[in-house]
Design a protein around this nucleic acid. Structure first.
Lengths: 220, 220
DNA sequence: TTATTTTTTTAGATTAATCTAAACTTTTAT
DNA sequence: ATAAAAGTTTAGATTAATCTAAAAAAATAA
């Protein structure tokens, strides 16, 4: 069984490596986990000994199959808990991250399977991130950035990338959550900002930075 | 903020001291926490420095007001989580303890207040133990052991003391949970066992050891 | 009341996770 | 191509939680 800390390293490496493909550098991990490079070196040696990742001195690490499976299970737990907090306990979607960071380390397969069933086997969490299934399978959605949407087209919001509390609160103000339909009404050429119409017909302006952080899918 | 381990010590001392009145010995704590007396001595010095308990060398410890408040909050969290696991997730009552031991250490007041509301502000957990309220107040019920019940009388089961999985499974087989009404039909003098009638009119025999572990209250 | 037993504490190590400072390797820039 | 910069590892400490073994204190028994 992995310690709390080991689990956090595995999860960090998973996220930094874009689902476990690329090699990740010591410094990136240190930055992500707010710790020192020397500490990371020690820990990745330990994780390499447990066959959770492949480590080549001075060239970073990449997760093994076992490491990826472990990471996906932690991600599954994190996203199920976030879903629970929002859907059942009435948390705002900007309030859930820190609590889910703790809950994801609870060790009980029975708990997770029962929680999953209680939530109705959700496929995505409140931010639109896919929830890996019991076997670690992730359902991929064909999605792209709102900034790449065409003027006049209708789309469904599928995911939000930046998870900062202020950004999420801003979106919440307009009920701009995964699942809602929006239409691009105008794209302003000089700064890339756009005017979109919401489900309630209200029109709002989104900066380029904002629209890049909102992922959408086609309105089939 | 207390560590996981510190919290477990405070909780252990609370339970061993019968709600924080009596002094608790080093050995009792070691036994309860499956650790060594030397380890306990170190830890209680640390907790004494944090003003969570009063420690007199060779004469054991007793919780301070701050220590009691801390203990009651941990107990509150533990019992709310057990209630959630049984009432919402469909756990059997003999399956919840280990998971609740982990969940009780999650740090989020918002989570606990929302969970409490979601559960409808329950007053007792699935074993009939009272859940301390937000301010640490515990509602005491006038209850006594079933072994002290009078032949012919009807009572309401209020709590089960022994929490071993096998004991709880045995009671579950007869739907003998806190809240159900039972009537004592016969007390056998030679071994102290008794025959009780359940809500479904079925009669079962309970050994003295069993009836001592079931608490009841009067059927007002 | 003194000796024996039990309980508790102290002393000294160990392991996991962390750090700083110094050494080493790789990358980048002239 | 070499020097400087950036990134990584090693060496040596530190803190929290734990242990064993030995010493000390308290309780019990003869």
């Amino acid at each position: 069984m992995l310690s709390f800390t080991e689990e956090n390293y595995i999860k960090a490496i998973y996220h930094l490596s874009d689902a476990g493909q690329l090699a990740v550098s010591t410094n990136d991990i240190a930055l992500h986990l707010q710790t020192k490079a020397a500490t990371v070196t020690d820990m990745i040696k330990k994780l390499a000994n447990k066959d959770l990742l492949a480590y080549e001195k001075y060239y970073g690490v990449s997760l093994s199959k076992k490491g990826k499976t472990t990471a996906l299970y932690i991600v599954r737990k994190h996203r199920l808990w976030e879903t629970f907090l929002v859907k059942k306990l009435g948390f705002q979607w900007d309030e859930v991250h820190e609590v889910a960071e703790q809950l994801e380390h609870i060790q009980s397969n029975l708990l997770i399977e029962k929680l999953d069933a209680f939530l109705g086997h959700p496929e995505t969490d409140p931010h639109g991130h896919p929830i890996p299934d019991k076997n670690g399978k992730v359902k991929q959605v064909k999605q792209f950035s709102l900034s790449q949407g065409k003027n006049g087209s209708k789309y469904i919001v599928s995911e939000v990338k930046d998870g900062s509390a202020t950004f999420l609160q801003y979106l919440a103000k307009y009920d701009l959550y995964p699942g809602v339909t929006i239409q691009i009404k105008e794209i302003l050429p000089f700064d890339g900002s756009m005017i979109v119409q919401l489900q309630n017909k209200q029109k709002i302006t989104l900066s380029k930075a904002t629209s890049e952080n909102i992922l959408i899918k086609n309105n089939e």
